[in-house]
């Protein structure tokens, strides 16, 4: 398992691996919103938590279609399926590698982008915590979507259509944590719900992903 994680991370950081694409995309989406809304500091700070979450969601989505498709094309997915590593574990590790290369950088830069959107200072910690708790779910659900669409030519769009509705609960509670945090309200209920969703998908999704991948590899 460690070997697979290290390989995926190494591939992500080498040329053409796509590390940083999600981050740059996140930055651009947030800047575009700031430009589109214009110089209305009060409005910007109200929509900041939601905009940061939408940006993180789309940035995560951007790299999902490469998650399994590359391994499928060069045949290593077939070989992994016949290796001693259970497919459920292999997919969990790949989701983890995706989160480290895509989700984690978003968590780290979110407060900095919060400044661009005039997010109130007390919200910085909460947007970071909300993304930290919520983005692992995005990677794990995304792996499931990638497993469904693996082998389909131009599966990227289909993948987005399948995965985005599944992101809704995470988005609702994640944005709620960030919004309440920014307004100085109590965040415990949405934060517990967000963590519950993340732990739930971490526990169940790998089995679903492995099952659909086995069907797709036939």
């Amino acid at each position: 398992m460690k070997a697979l994680l290290l390989r995926d991370l190494r591939l992500a950081f080498r040329a053409g691996g796509g590390f940083g694409l999600g981050l740059a995309f996140f930055l651009i989406v947030v800047m575009l919103v700031a430009f589109a809304v214009g110089p209305q500091a009060e409005l910007l700070s109200r929509i900041a938590p939601g905009v940061l979450w939408i940006g993180a969601l789309l940035a995560c989505l951007l790299s999902l279609d490469r998650l399994l498709a590359l391994d499928f094309e060069d045949g290593s997915l077939d070989l992994l399926a016949t290796a001693p590593l259970p497919l459920e574990a292999a997919l969990s590790v790949k989701a983890l590698a995706h989160w480290i290369t895509t989700g984690l950088p978003l968590v780290v830069v979110a407060p900095a982008l919060g400044v661009l959107l005039n997010l109130p200072p007390q919200g910085f910690a909460w947007i970071t915590i909300a993304l930290l708790v919520g983005t692992p779910a995005l990677s794990v659900i995304g792996t499931f979507g990638a497993a469904i669409t693996v082998g389909i030519k131009r599966g990227g769009l289909l993948l987005s259509l399948l995965v985005l509705p599944l992101y809704v609960p995470t988005l609702i509670f994640g944005a709620e944590v960030a919004r309440r945090g920014a307004q100085g309200m109590d965040v415990s209920t949405p934060l517990l719900m967000l963590a519950g969703i993340t732990f739930g998908v971490l526990a169940c999704m790998p089995f679903a992903s492995a099952a659909v991948l086995r069907v797709n590899l036939r």
Binding site: A3, L4, G16, G75, S76, P84
Partner: peptide
């Protein structure tokens, strides 16, 4: 040990790294 038409190689890893990965998996 299965070997198909596709070799399952990663273009951006060296020959040795490719083999080391599979050795560690197995």
């Amino acid at each position: 040990a299965y070997a198909a038409h596709a070799d399952g190689l990663k273009a951006m890893l060296s020959v040795r790294e490719n083999l080391e990965f599979w050795a560690e998996v197995f």
